[in-house]
């Protein structure tokens, strides 16, 4: 894709530009926030103390990334309560992969989910490194640096838990259940807006291309450890018509969500509502002043 011209600062964007940026930033931020919210469920419940500490770290990384994206949305006049605490649950844009609850003890779900998510993250972030919106592009390097650990962590667990038949069966269940939801990571918020995101060069690869790259990465990796991916006929290089998957009813990106999301939302906003808060405490420096 030809290098698009740089977009101006947040105050000088046209309405169309701002709409495209907001849609993208909400997808990014909501994905990170919600999947981190689910990851923290493993804290004090992971298989061993060491793995507990690691999953906590990954959750904090993702939350930290959400923080950086939400902060870019604050440029448009929003404050944290508008973005998180008082925003209606039906307005969130995360992929449904992020919101599904974990069954107790289903560490296979965690491993497969983080594998599918982190591989997608990596591809998505690479497509943002050269974003035409400098305030976004500037933050990607730091975020990308932390994703390396996430990918290695997920891949390591994936390989080891596929060594014996019993665990591999659990992993297979997780793949069967999660794969359709993982595909929603590449679902459009709205076709027109996604096209505009690409045209403006806010992202340097479009959703379909990224989806094919992702399939090219995850499917062979899953098959190499003895897992089977339903419907996966690996596409000829980036020919989207070969990957014929059924998507779930709820896509997330278009603001449709599973019931589990609304329960989760009620839980994480509980204190905020109980206390009758109207603002959210900041304790760290503004990301621009770091």
């Amino acid at each position: 894709m030809a290098a698009a011209k740089q977009l101006p600062g947040p105050q000088d964007l046209s309405d169309d530009e701002r709409e495209a940026l907001e849609a993208l930033l909400f997808s990014l931020a909501d994905d990170e926030f919600v999947i981190a919210e689910r990851y923290t469920e493993w804290q004090v419940r992971a298989p061993t103390i060491e793995s507990d500490i690691s999953v906590a770290n990954i959750a904090q990384d993702e939350l930290g990334h959400a923080r950086l994206y939400y902060d870019l949305l604050e440029d448009f006049g929003y404050e944290e309560p508008d973005l998180i605490w008082e925003r209606d649950a039906s307005e969130w844009r995360h992929s449904t992969l992020c919101e599904l609850p974990f069954d107790e003890g289903d560490w296979a779900d965690y491993v497969v989910r983080s594998f599918l998510f982190d591989e997608a993250e990596y591809i998505r972030l690479q497509a943002l490194e050269g974003s035409s919106y400098p305030r976004l592009a500037d933050r990607i390097e730091k975020i990308l640096a932390e994703e390396t650990y996430h990918r290695e962590h997920a891949r390591s667990w994936l390989e080891r838990l596929c060594e014996d038949d019993e665990s591999r069966a659990r992993m297979q269940d997780a793949v069967d259940r999660l794969m359709p939801h993982a595909l929603t990571l590449f679902a459009p918020t709205d076709e027109d807006i996604e096209a505009r995101i690409d045209d403006l060069g806010i992202r340097t690869e479009n959703l379909l291309t990224m989806r094919e790259e992702w399939l090219d990465e995850v499917v062979p990796r899953l098959e190499s450890v003895g897992l089977h991916v339903e419907e996966a006929q690996l596409p000829e290089q980036y020919d989207v018509h070969h990957a014929d998957f059924d998507l779930p009813d709820e896509l997330g990106r278009d603001q449709s969500h599973t019931d589990a999301w609304f329960d989760l939302y009620d839980e994480f906003t509980k204190s905020y509502r109980e206390l009758g808060r109207h603002e959210a405490a900041k304790i760290m420096k503004d990301p621009d002043d770091e």
């Binding site: 004090v44 419940r45 103390i49 500490i53 770290n57 900041k282």
Partner: peptide, 25 residues
């Protein structure tokens, strides 16, 4: 641990997760 989820701000949530992590450590 329930208050990682119930923390009323994003940064408090980070802090609660970090604290719980330290305790496991």
């Amino acid at each position: 641990r329930p208050f990682i989820r119930q923390a009323p701000s994003l940064e408090r949530k980070l802090a609660f997760s970090a604290k719980t992590q330290d305790e496991l450590g």
